[in-house]
């Protein structure tokens, strides 16, 4: 494993598989236990540095670190020196002085974790940067797919929605490709980046044509405000063409699953009855997030300094 986890490309197939296997072992080791805590990272310090509000991701990382007995410092940009104009570099030097062994960073600017990695000695884990990547989300998604379908190799995955602005999509395309899955991106052309043709994924504008041929549908959050910038004409038209409703769910193969990284816009990209159906993995994804992040922290921090 590399020292940092900044993007899906930091993981080759062996590393990615090791993370998933480790998460599975951790899950198994903790299954049915009353005290879900391991002493593994006792004495290590994990800093959650969140420049963007994301309670669910922060809590997931916090729980992961605490279950491994690490000391956790939550450093929220809101209301701290950060919001008073302290630069990322100054914050990095502060964290360095605190002796952070790992910095979990969420930032609205693409590449901020890469910058941070130049300035701290500890491991940097990207918990979502701008419209770039969110690698632990991709790991937990891959873990969830493997758990449900028993494999990743050859699994057909449709990623549907605002690919252009989605760090989840970028990380998933990269990681799922690394792990041997076949990815199809489905979106209106306005919500696909120029240059998407260079990605290891198929591209389709037609959700109905893709759905019967996939094992996994991953719905991305679409912000209704995008229509103000003319990415699509209206929320209603978007949802009619690219939303996953009960009718569309009906054309999926029998054992296909429906995923969503959350938070969902029910009625926009996903209908309530789909989100709450047996195909939906949305709740598992949350649980799997903790074990996957435990595996990442263990593998990055447990090891000898390379």
């Amino acid at each position: 494993m590399k020292r940092h986890l900044l993007e899906a490309a930091d993981l080759d197939r062996a590393d990615a598989t090791l993370v998933l296997d480790t998460a599975a072992q951790i899950d198994q080791a903790l299954a049915g236990r009353e005290v879900k805590k391991l002493p593994t990272l006792r004495g290590r310090t994990v800093v959650n540095l969140f420049y963007e509000d994301s309670t669910r991701t922060r809590i997931s990382f916090e729980l992961a670190a605490k279950r491994l007995s690490a000391d956790v410092i939550n450093f929220s940009a809101k209301g701290s020196s950060v919001s008073k104009g302290e630069s990322l570099k100054d914050t990095a030097l502060t964290l360095e002085a605190m002796g952070a062994d790992a910095v979990v960073v969420r930032h609205s600017s693409s590449g901020a974790p890469h910058r941070l990695a130049n300035w701290v000695r500890g491991s940097v884990v990207n918990a979502g940067d701008g419209t770039h990547e969110h690698p632990t989300q991709a790991l937990l998604d891959a873990y969830t797919i493997r758990q449900r379908l028993g494999r990743l190799e050859g699994v057909r995955v449709a990623i549907v929605g605002d690919v252009l602005h989605s760090r989840v999509a970028r990380s998933n395309v990269g990681l799922l490709h690394t792990l041997g899955a076949d990815v199809t991106l489905v979106a209106p052309p306005t919500l696909l980046p120029v240059g998407v043709g260079s990605w290891p994924a198929e591209v389709s504008y037609d959700l109905d044509a893709v759905l019967p041929k996939v094992d996994v549908v991953m719905m991305l959050r679409v912000q209704a405000e995008r229509m103000n910038a003319s990415f699509f004409p209206s929320a209603r038209e978007y949802s009619r063409r690219y939303g996953l409703d009960a009718r569309r769910m009906g054309v999926l193969p029998d054992d296909a699953i429906v995923m969503h990284p959350g938070p969902m816009n029910r009625g926009m990209e996903i209908a309530a009855e789909v989100a709450d159906s047996a195909r939906s993995t949305i709740v598992e994804q949350v649980a799997n997030g903790v074990s996957t992040r435990m595996a990442v922290l263990y593998l990055l921090l447990g090891g000898a300094p390379a």
Partner: peptide, 18 residues
């Protein structure tokens, strides 16, 4: 816009300058 719009901006998640 942050960088040239193309394959790399798509991957890096930086808004493209066409």
């Amino acid at each position: 816009a942050q960088m040239h719009e193309g394959d790399r901006s798509a991957r890096l998640g930086l808004t493209g300058w066409p």
